[in-house]
Design a protein around this nucleic acid. Structure first.
Lengths: 157, 157
DNA sequence: ATTTATTGGGTTGATATCCACGTATTTACG
DNA sequence: CGTAAATACGTGGATATCAACCCAATAAAT
């Protein structure tokens, strides 16, 4: 008699149909693939695009503030910066006012590449919102922000 | 005069506030962390939990069907199976009816661990839905399914 | 029946993600 | 002041994710 201690199949159906974590992972993977594919001619991923975009401001932000903005682990951001630094798209410099902090800035090449990616983003984002059919994208964004924790901090300069 | 070719700052604000890809990645990361933390005593990640749960059925599914269900790349699933196989939670066997296909089954240890994880999932999922405050979780799930592509295929046995 | 196309998976290489641990700097406190 | 707590990052290790390329087995075409 197999599966003496197995969870009942009804639980499996419940998780499949209702788990927000699973639903989020699926949607995040699917949408990320769309953006990755669209950005591939520029040799950028969706995460690299979002990261570069978050650095497009006059006051160079620190590692911690960007990682909070993107709701990612601080060490993940450190890792993600390496290929961008290697390609000369981003530069880091120690903050003279607080020598623990590193300030992140786009290079000219980084800014140019980011500018070239904007039309791709516009197009892909429109296609993504189109997938929602009649649903309200802003309402979805509100829900996603609520799940992202109190990290929707200010990016303003 | 720096940033001659930089995207205008208004674009940055627009992406930050409206990009569904970014919003999804943020929420997915944040929620995944919650589940990972809750499941850590069982030495499971949210992805491992979802994968094990998707194998809790009488007819052992193939790699391709599970990867479609989870909306992940086929090769990602192959990689994710390795630590679970190493721990003796999952077994794979060539399908005699089609020798290209590998059928995935939970072991007794896998079923037992999954059963132990169900209460953790219940608790964590309730906390996640609570983050939505007044919003309708089912409406959010509907939106997420629309973004996950036509992969919400049947898991039924 | 042979050839061809399709399908199901695996492997490798690169990036992504997070945790546990450690280091350096700054701030707070006594 | 000088020490303790807090802050800002980095490294190493493990898993996660996907593209590109390859192989084996089945299905389709002539």
């Amino acid at each position: 008699m197999p599966n003496c201690k197995s969870p009942p199949f009804e639980i499996t159906l419940k998780v499949r149909d209702s788990c927000l974590c699973l639903h989020l992972q699926r949607a995040a993977r699917a949408v990320a693939r769309q953006f990755d594919e669209a950005l591939r001619p520029l040799d950028l991923t969706n995460g690299q695009f979002s990261l570069l975009m978050s650095l497009n401001r006059s006051e160079p932000p620190s590692i911690g503030s960007v990682s909070a903005l993107l709701a990612m682990d601080r060490t993940t951001l450190t890792a993600n910066l390496k290929p961008l630094e290697r390609r000369g798209l981003v530069q880091t410099a120690i903050d003279p006012a607080d020598r623990r902090s590193r300030r992140l800035t786009l290079t000219a090449a980084g800014s140019a590449l980011l500018a070239a990616a904007v039309p791709v983003w516009e197009e892909t984002h429109a296609a993504t919102e189109h997938l929602l059919s009649g649903a309200d994208p802003e309402r979805l964004r509100t829900d996603l922000r609520a799940l992202s924790g109190p990290r929707a901090v200010a990016l303003c300069p």
